[in-house]
Amino acid sequence: MKLNILYFGLIAEQIKTTSEELILDTSISINQLQKKLIKKHAILNNLEYQIAYNKQITSKETIINSDSEIALLPPFAGG
């Protein structure tokens, strides 16, 4: 299963990338994915963000079980 992880705004600036691919062999929850990402990018511990799963903000218990797009979204500033 292939996850395309997108980073925006302050998060992209801090991590120094706007996207990366993650290959997983089992289904995981958003929560578990978040832990994996924090392990990789410790700075995420200090940043505020929401996670979108296929362009929807969903509960942290949601299970990701197929190729998906995941986005880490810092606070919104539209308008």
Binding site: E13, L73, F76, G78
Partner: peptide, 24 residues
């Protein structure tokens, strides 16, 4: 609803070209 829900991000740029990230 736009302010609250649209995933739009804003970099506030100063005269000296430094910046901060805006939060609604």
């Amino acid at each position: 609803r736009i302010k609250l829900e649209a995933p739009v991000f804003g970099k506030e740029i100063f005269e000296d070209e430094t910046h901060v990230w805006k939060v609604n």
